[in-house]
Computed example of a mutant assay.
Amino acid sequence: MRQHFFLRALLGACLLFCLSGRATAIAAPGDTEQIRETLTDYMEGTANGEPERLRRAFHPDFNLYAVTEAGTLLVRSGGKYIADIKPGNKINRIGRILSIDVENNAASAKVEIAMPNFRIYTDYFMLLKYEGGWKIVHKSYTWKEASKSKDKVLFITSNQHTYGNTKLNASNHFEEIVIAYDIFRKSGLVVDFVSPNGGAIPVGYVDTSNQTQKDYLYDAGFMNLLKNTFKPAQVDPNDYKAIYYSGGGAAMFGVAENTAIQRIALKIHDNGGVISAVCHGTAGIVNLKNSAGASIFSNRKITGFPDMFENTAADYYKTFPFSIGKEIARQGGNFVHSKRFGDNFHVVDGNFITGQDPSSTASVARKVIETIQKMH
């Protein structure tokens, strides 16, 4: 069984996020990253009161076009837009890039700007490349009222593409992401994604014979969420009722030691929220300690992918920074697991909800929902 599991992992890994193939097939090397930098100048320049960053992002002839609530056409020049930004005046705006499409020296982009408890804006941009750089020449937008619900779940994912410094592909487990996401969304929860570096994450272990996985694989809107995960600095932990660490081999790298993600998880825990994880995702919680230096899961029953299902003699395993089970135990947790793979083994101990392997994903998600509902 474990050989089948890891064969599937190697065959599935690593689906990279190039679904908008034009951006990678036609764009010159570095163009997409330069556009990201330009859009980041726009997002952070507006949010943090930095007019100079807006001047860097906008072409001198930039114009904004939008339809007002009264149904009239609004036209604003870049100069007027920048003049309305007061230096140092920070606004509670959380921006993330949803898509970038590049063809030669022209590009279009879509950005979401969330203003909590007010509105969610969708910005549409046209950009041109000239003199070696990308500039925004046009912006339009639409908006909707922001949900007043505080019931949000934060997914923790990894940017790691390989097992350690090897050339062996590593990835985030697609099933453990989409099955949980689907259950959370259908229950009315809002889901956000964060990774140590932000941006695109690799995914693998994809099973297109599963209809839910297949539907999300070809859902451009969902895949754009995985192409544009938040950076930890963009996340306010007070917005979330639960944190969910998905697995896959990539989860062993870059997450557990990330202090910014640790702070987010600890704040959610301190607020009475849920700490949940599936499979190798449990690796992400091993360094979570309270102000006294004790593990927050001390004396709690915790599960995750056990060594008995690993090929400990294989090259991939030799790159792991630690054994999940041994590290949980070393840090004071009570690591438990089933002796059977794929039997939906999961554990609930207070606000800690963990699953052993992919088969437990749905159960973990449902237990998270039940726990959140009890908070009301």
Rank of each mutant, 00 (worst) to 15 (best):
D207Q: 12
P237E: 04
F253L: 09
T259N: 13
F184P: 02
A220C: 09
V191I: 04
P237N: 05
I201A: 05
V235P: 07
N210M: 11
N228K: 06
I177R: 14
Q211L: 13
I177F: 11
R185P: 02
G199A: 00
I177T: 15
M223P: 11
G221R: 13
K241A: 06
F222L: 03
Y181C: 04
F184G: 00
S195V: 00
P232K: 07
V206P: 05
N210L: 11
G248P: 01
M252V: 03
I243L: 14
M223S: 11
P196G: 04
E176V: 03
A200S: 08
V190D: 11
I183N: 12
A233P: 10
D192R: 00
N258D: 14
Y245W: 09
R185E: 14
D236W: 00
A260T: 10
L225N: 14
G188C: 01
Y216W: 10
D219A: 03
L189W: 02
P232S: 05
I183S: 12
Y205R: 11
I183C: 08
G254N: 08
M223N: 14
G247M: 07
Q234I: 07
Q262A: 14
Y218C: 07
G247Y: 10
A242C: 00
V194I: 05
A220S: 15
P237Y: 06
N210W: 12
Y181V: 02
P196N: 05
V190A: 11
G247H: 09
A233L: 10
F230D: 09
Y181D: 12
K231H: 12
E176N: 08
Q213P: 09
F253Y: 14
L217A: 08
L225V: 02
G221W: 11
I179Q: 05
D236V: 01
D192F: 01
V235A: 09
K231D: 02
K231I: 04
V194M: 01
A233S: 15
A242R: 06
Y240N: 05
I261R: 07
V194P: 00
P196E: 09
A233Y: 12
Y218H: 14
D207C: 00
E257K: 00
Y244H: 13
G188H: 01
A242E: 02
V194E: 01
A260C: 07
D239W: 06
A180I: 01
I183Y: 11
I243F: 13
T212G: 05
L225W: 12
F184Q: 06
T208G: 04
Y240F: 06
N228G: 02
M252N: 11
N238P: 01
F253H: 12
L217K: 13
N197S: 06
K231N: 05
A233E: 15
F230M: 08
Q213M: 14
N228I: 02
S209F: 10
S195D: 07
G199Y: 06
I261K: 06
Y181M: 08
P232G: 04
V235E: 09
G188P: 01
P232V: 08
D207E: 14
D192Y: 00
Y205F: 14
V203E: 12
L189A: 01
G204A: 03
S246Y: 11
P237W: 05
F222C: 01
I201E: 04
A220D: 15
A242L: 02
E257W: 03
N228D: 10
F230C: 04
A233C: 09
N238Y: 09
